[in-house]
Design a protein around this nucleic acid. Sequence first.
DNA 1: TTCCATGCAAAGGGTTTGCACTCTC
DNA 2: GAGAGTGCAAACCCTTTGCATGGAA
Lengths: 137, 137
Amino acid sequence: MADMTPEAASALLRGAGIPVTRQRVQIACAFLGAPAHLTAEQLVARMREQAPGLARATVYNTLGLFVAHGLVREIIVDGGSVIYDSNTAPHFHYYDSRSGELGDLPAEALRVSGMPQLPPHLELEAVDVIVRVRSRG
Amino acid sequence: MADMTPEAASALLRGAGIPVTRQRVQIACAFLGAPAHLTAEQLVARMREQAPGLARATVYNTLGLFVAHGLVREIIVDGGSVIYDSNTAPHFHYYDSRSGELGDLPAEALRVSGMPQLPPHLELEAVDVIVRVRSRG
DNA sequence: TTCCATGCAAAGGGTTTGCACTCTC
DNA sequence: GAGAGTGCAAACCCTTTGCATGGAA
């Protein structure tokens, strides 16, 4: 868990245009220090240890803010819960439906080409690729 | 809503190795007749009209069965709910996060190449591509 | 000081479960 | 007749909401 220093976290938030508060700094320190895949609930649990006063709703709000400002990405693999990815570099994911394990695929691993014409009122936002795998057995 | 005949639905179920029951035939008739994107709840609502006796849990169970036997596909776009796709031909999807609209992209519209090496204990199941768009405004 | 952010608890939506009854094979 | 499938309602999980307090600028 390479946590980020509070100073670095504050700078990061400011740079992203997010008003700095203590809780946001705490969450950034715990989550943005190194690439990680975490559900909101997992992050709530982690924050309970590191910052017991922090409320569940604040974690959810803050994650939403981070997504809106491009500090983290949402990965949606199974309807049940959203996974947040602190690695914002372009890359793809594989997901093992048997174990629930989620992993990274480097951007070079596969290429998506031939982006189709979109109806003129639609604007491209992102292309999510999930490689679904299953552990043999 | 090009519903399927009960006879065709029974044959389809049998062909997929799914034991035939009246409810499964009803659901197949209502959903598998033509390509459609429906959430479980939407299908529950539709079944309430066509077959009032049918329980919510039965719809969920049956959709799970259909997925396991390849009769429909799950599309996961927003964490909140799973969308079921009765079109099992290879194709991709676009999703408008603003309106919630989900649409098809033909398989030829884009190409995914360079499938990466997977760790040896993992078996490829599917590659899901979701093109996220946003209506301008 | 002014407003936005936070904490808390409870509501909400979608999905799954437990158990008795019913039907298919 | 044996077993799986079904209906019903309640439980469950993740997420969001409402409102009063507290903190940042």
